[in-house]
Design a protein around this nucleic acid. Structure first.
Lengths: 224, 224
DNA sequence: CGTAACTTTGATTAGTATCAAAAATGGTGG
DNA sequence: CCACCATTTTTGATACTAATCAAAGTTACG
């Protein structure tokens, strides 16, 4: 079946959805990275998730009335806009699609729980190691990288806002991981030297990513 | 329609699901409170959500293969066990049910995002105020309390593990809120004296609870 | 090649953690 | 009904992680 949609390009930093809005459509990421965030009253930002090409963001907006968070482009991105009504119709007509949407949402929630554990209980060193591992694995699973080396699509301030620590502290801790021989860095490119040690430091167990279940979901496969 | 299920009673502290398992059924809470948690390697615990009578926990287990977190009884509880297969069948046969499940899961994820913001960016004082407000509102919405006073179903150590701070610090901060006249306490019973000030301290905006959308979902209505 | 964005470094401080122990509370059996 | 025990709450003293403030390098880009 073919799905009605519009394509749209966005520059790094542009907003896809703002908290409080009720958007008319949800987005499938064609290329690039997107993040969701929430702000405190005094302007502090928590990044609550990041999304790769192939994922649907704001499923949300098709099934709830008001956006409870912001969605922004982390890099330049291309997205397909799928109208709210089309999304709902699909999920009624095709139980398999409804199921895939539910599974994608359940996995999203699982990742959120792991992030909450990360921010609530782990040291800053572990948090960073964990994030490096997670992104590596998700990129690999999506077929976007091959090796143990990749360019992280975030500046240190954004990493800080993922992890609930300051940018200055991210910088020092990152450096420490490199000095200890776990990773190498060249600008934003990270080369994982010692995957075993890094996962140990970050207590990284990929179970929460539910990568096998995700395979059953066509929505998560990038369409390149 | 009638839904096949078993009833089960659990004492405070008992496990409904353990990380790594693949349970055969999901649970509808009949009475009491339940919480989900994850542990770090060195045994620190992050409570990632709490659930009231009327909510379905571990929807999860009907649609993903492996539990990525623990579910435990916060108080003595009664739960209805709904077999995995029944749950799946329902969601195929009745699109409205599939939709309700998706909405419940989306709201769960929204609450997780707010908790992540809370733990990642807010002061301990704000975190506690926020939690007090959230529980008050959820209890009210579920019809479990009337007034601005309720008994919080957690000991201070559990509150600490919700908020990513220590139990000792919870105690002091709680006390400070009482000394400032925002709340009164008698054991675990909290009386909110100044709702306006408390929401201001906790930056509490109930939007993320999506209470209106939840109304459309029969699963969230307690069945007494 | 100048400017803005980002990274790195240093010095100081605030907020919480940690450790230890005393007081209060609630439940149970005698 | 009381005494006792386990659990929970409260208090105090000290240590440490990470925040904050400030500024110097570095890189990327128009």
């Amino acid at each position: 079946m073919s799905l009605e949609h519009d394509l749209r390009s966005l520059k790094r930093g542009e907003c896809l959805v703002e908290e409080g809005e009720q958007p008319d459509d949800c987005r499938l990421i064609g290329s690039g990275f997107v993040y969701r965030n929430k702000l405190t009253c005094d302007g502090k930002r928590q990044i609550v998730s990041i999304h790769l090409a192939g994922e649907i963001v704001d499923l949300h907006n098709s099934f709830l009335n008001v956006a409870d968070h912001n969605v922004q482009a982390l890099t330049d991105v291309e997205v397909a806009l799928i109208p709210r009504a089309a999304m709902r119709r699909l999920s009624v007509d095709y139980p398999a699609i409804a199921r895939a949407l539910l599974i994608e949402t359940l996995i999203d929630a699982s990742i959120l729980r792991e992030w909450l554990l990360n921010v609530g209980q782990r040291s800053s060193r572990a948090r960073i190691a964990h994030l490096i591992c997670e992104i590596a694995l998700r990129l690999r699973a999506a077929g976007l990288i091959e090796a143990e080396s990749y360019t992280i699509p975030m500046i240190q301030e954004e990493i800080a806002d993922c992890l609930g620590i300051t940018q200055v502290h991210v910088n020092r801790t990152f450096r420490a991981l490199a000095e200890d021989g776990l990773i190498e860095r060249d600008g934003r490119t990270i080369n994982i030297i010692n995957w075993g040690a890094l996962t140990a430091v970050g207590e990284f167990n990929p179970r929460y990513l539910h990568l096998c279940e995700a395979d059953a979901n066509p929505g998560r496969r990038p369409s390149h």
